[in-house]
């Protein structure tokens, strides 16, 4: 069972229906008990960073998510959920994140149109189980204005080019971040979610 953290902002229904099409059981929850019992956690993400962190704090989930992530339980942050894995974000004033990954989230420089919106191609840097069956250059759907600007390069699994190099998939142990929306990226995205489901022991 995957616990999808339901902190109130954005579209999470699509994520849940994508998982159910793959026969991966999931539930939307904010219950500490359910999150602790779950085999894996997805921190989804459409929304604004400061608002989302405020919601997590209000729900009393910040320290719980940190401790769950340290238990080697598969933990996936998607889009804003990936950004929240980092130390801070510039979105909504410098705002602290969960700090699971080193680095800062910054606005995409305006040498390109911001937000980065649409299908862009993956440049794969490391072959990891999460990207099993995914070809170099596969198109996936991005919708974001901020990105993980200063992260550890050893965590970088795949990136894409949009004015700058945008980390697209990051991994540190069993904690994963995906900047694009796998639930909106057609069969490529579904394959990635399926791969994540297979990490659950």
């Amino acid at each position: 069972m995957i616990a999808i953290i339901d902190y109130g902002a954005g579209n999470i229904k699509s994520l849940q229906s994508a998982l159910s099409r793959l026969d991966i059981p999931s539930l939307l929850t904010t219950s500490k008990n359910e999150i602790e019992k779950a085999d894996a956690i997805i921190l989804p993400g459409v929304g604004a960073f400061a608002e989302a962190m405020k919601q997590l704090e209000k729900l009393g989930l910040v320290s719980l998510l940190k401790s769950e992530a340290s238990k080697n339980k598969p933990f996936l942050g998607i889009c804003l959920g990936m950004q929240m894995l980092y130390e801070t974000s510039d979105e909504g004033g410098e705002c602290p994140g969960l700090g699971l990954f080193k680095g800062k989230v910054r606005l995409i420089p305006d040498i390109v149109k911001v937000p980065h919106m649409g299908w862009n191609d993956l440049q794969i840097k490391q072959n990891v189980p999460l990207l099993n069956g995914i070809r170099e250059g596969s198109h996936v759907y991005f919708v974001h204005a901020y990105f993980a600007a200063e992260g550890d390069t050893e965590n970088l699994v795949a990136d894409t080019a949009y004015g700058v190099r945008i980390p697209a998939v990051v991994q540190q142990g069993n904690v994963f971040g995906i900047q694009f929306h796998p639930e909106k990226s057609g069969s490529i995205g579904l394959q990635i979610l399926k791969n994540f489901g297979e990490l659950i022991s």
């Binding site: 579209n11 699509s14 459409v46 929304g47 604004a48 804003l80 937000p115 919708v143 929306h181």
Partner: peptide, 28 residues
């Protein structure tokens, strides 16, 4: 389940709807 919302007349009548929605859901 929508990913984005499109606003038109309501934003003309009340431009703050754009900023309020962007602050709450993200401008993307």
């Amino acid at each position: 389940g929508a990913d984005k919302v499109s606003i038109n007349s309501a934003a003309v009548k009340n431009p703050q709807l754009i900023s309020d929605a962007a602050a709450k859901f993200g401008r993307q």
